[in-house]
Amino acid sequence: MIGAGTMGAGIAASASAANYEVYLVELAAAARERAAAGLTKTLGRLLPDAAGAEAAFGRIRLVDSVAQATSGDIYIEAVPEVLDLKRTVFAELARLAPAGALLATNTSSLAVGEIARPTGRAQSVVGIHFFNPPAVMKLVEVVRAEQSSDESVRRAVEFVERLGKTPVVVRDTPGFVVNRVARPYYLEALRAIDAGAADAECVDAVLEGLGFKMGPCRLMDLIGLDVNLATTRSVYEATHVERLRPSPLQERMVAEGRLGRKSSRGFYDYGA
């Protein structure tokens, strides 16, 4: 695992709980310390048996460079969503990972094919997109890029299944399945509110009344309107279809700093 943020640490915990030996690579010492504390907690939840959790913790080695993890079968990158950063990691993996290794990126918004380019072994590269929190969420999108080999996709699927999760194989397209198909849930709410058809509370009540766990406005407040808008923008900018055009209402709210719970104000007020 390269990157010990929320996603990287969560994926490392899931893998060690499934009996994998894991090297968790993180440059920053502070982040390594945070990750160690997080791993203990996550493994305690995943494996109620204390001895089992301790053994799983023992299967994870926190290291500070890929050079200390050169015998891996599967490499998964989970560094921030910046193309150059991810490419740097993949260039390093191309140098240090064994020839037969599976190389995977946990990107949610970048093209896997673009990330794979500097490796010179794009056939070994796939996307393995976990959802947050990765130790809990069952779905994993296995992303087949144009040059991914069938064998690489098969290995990724098998890995995900061994973690007790459900893989869905998707093509390397903007937003893959979930982040793309979910856009209208937010966009239709925003458009209806912007047209004056209803307020946020009404929209949420109607959709929760249809069985959605959380109405779109409460959900955007939780996710952060800026984060939600960034996802819509990244899908829109890669496709330019009218259906997915970002909402001017959301742009205004983000510009005004109404980001949701984290700024105490979004569609709803959360006190100061």
Binding site: V177, V178, K213
Partner: peptide
């Protein structure tokens, strides 16, 4: 657009977003 099969799209949305 060939992103995934109809069944896989439905499965992904239910598991990934909790849609009913």
């Amino acid at each position: 657009h060939g992103v995934a099969s109809a069944d896989d799209v439905d499965r992904a949305m239910q598991l990934g977003t909790n849609y009913p």
